[in-house]
Amino acid sequence: MESLTSGLASGLASDLTSSLTTGLVPALVPLVLAGLLGWTGAVKLFGRGTVRQAPKTALARMLRSSERTVLVLRTVGAAELVAAVGLLALPASVGSTAAAAPGVAAAALGAGFLGYLARARATAPESSCGCSAGDDAPITWRTFARAAAVLAGGAVSAACALGAAWMAEGSTGADGAAQPWWTVIQEQPFVSLGFLLLSSAVLVGLSADLDRWWRLPLRRFRLRLFGHPFNSAAAGGSAVPVAATVELLERSLAWQAASPVVRSGLVDHWAEDGWRILQFTGVYEESGEEGGAARPVAVLFALDATVSTDTTAEPAVRVAIVDADTGEAVAAELLSPAVRPALPLAG
């Protein structure tokens, strides 16, 4: 059993080594990078969102002009597209140092993006980066990671092209020579597909502007699959929360009557005998007396603990205003029914 396991492990290791030496990764990295640069470049160059998005970018803050920002974004987009086409059309297998140019250009773009992002993060962290038009997400670690991926991908592509050029100058043999990406895909379709899918998934994960296409649908699907995490039974069923009672109180006539006295927010609440008691503090200034003393009071409301604005619009509310120190009831006149004079009758 042990020999079988070790045999499998060594077989896998040798497969991996051979796939690396035969140039699967060096051949496919430019392809993935070209896909990324082609997408962001095309969106910047041709997208209608570029003009709309330009004023929101950190670049607009730096250049202090929306028009100049649009021009720069379109130029960078064109450069990205050219680099993408170069990466696709000039694989390392060409065997010339010229094949390194798209990789160098991509690496330069990546380095430029990183520098711009660092400056933008320092000067205008709330702005969007403008990395792809239509993207209004702010600059986060994902934006930096994607720019770093462009730099690393460009460096790998350029290094592989230069290595292939030196090997082509030094020998005539075909063994170990770099292969273009289309040959690699033909020869190792499944491994290539796996690599492309994996690297694309990583890049999509690093692109905040693509979140709405995969993150929300994925989360919705997960809820559908595993159920809603907040089920109604666990939340205490139909019990009326204290906040709902306070809401009901604040819409009541009792609240209107007592509000001249109430000064605080909710201080305390408790339930007793089916009542929900809400306690506020306030100041009662006795009227009718010259310089009437202001007394600190506790304002108490008692409501049925089972009703809310859904069940009644006019709750019966018991109100008491008591002196905070002595407990003596005060302000009875405030809560007593208004006495209305009879209206004179016509005729």
């Binding site: 007592a258 005998d273 009542w275 008692a302 509310v317 018991r318 109100v319 008491a320 407990g327």
Partner: peptide, 12 residues
């Protein structure tokens, strides 16, 4: 305080 508000308080 409960006695104050529930027993004999004004019902508004």
């Amino acid at each position: 305080l409960t006695r104050t508000v529930v027993g004999g308080a004004t019902i508004v």
